[in-house]
């Protein structure tokens, strides 16, 4: 059987992959997908903690409700973020972040 540590390790590695994507990629849409990976890594560790914190024979449903809210907010965030990207593309005709430096110090 897999233990809690195995799930936490998988979640941490998924977070690391997303983090590496945000740092290394230059395409704004790929960066956005890597952000989604990081959100989902956090969700995985929450669900794992919920399953391993059993009270009266039931998993801890507070954590699962929190994951439900995170998924809802993430879906709204994706919609807004992609609208911003489309508006940005309309203004600048690029999704490469090296070309989007008008706010850079």
């Amino acid at each position: 059987m897999a233990t809690l540590n195995d799930y936490l390790l998988a979640s941490g590695l998924l977070f690391t992959i997303g983090f590496a994507g945000v740092l290394l990629r230059r395409n704004i849409i790929i960066i956005y997908m890597a952000l989604e990976l990081m959100l989902n890594a956090a969700n995985l560790s929450l669900v794992a903690f919920s399953r391993f914190h059993v009270q009266a024979g039931l998993p801890d449903y507070n954590a699962q409700v929190l994951v439900f809210f995170i998924i809802t907010v993430a879906a709204a965030e994706v919609a807004v973020g992609l609208a911003v990207i489309v508006a940005l593309y309309r203004a600048k005709q690029t999704t490469h972040i090296d070309d989007l430096n008008s706010l850079k110090f």
């Binding site: 799930y7 998924l14 995985l44 669900v47 794992a48 399953r51 699962q64 994951v67």
Partner: peptide
């Protein structure tokens, strides 16, 4: 990831 949720008995999620 969804399969891992199901392995953790979180079928709804």
């Amino acid at each position: 990831l969804a399969a891992l949720y199901i392995s953790l008995d979180a079928f709804f999620l």
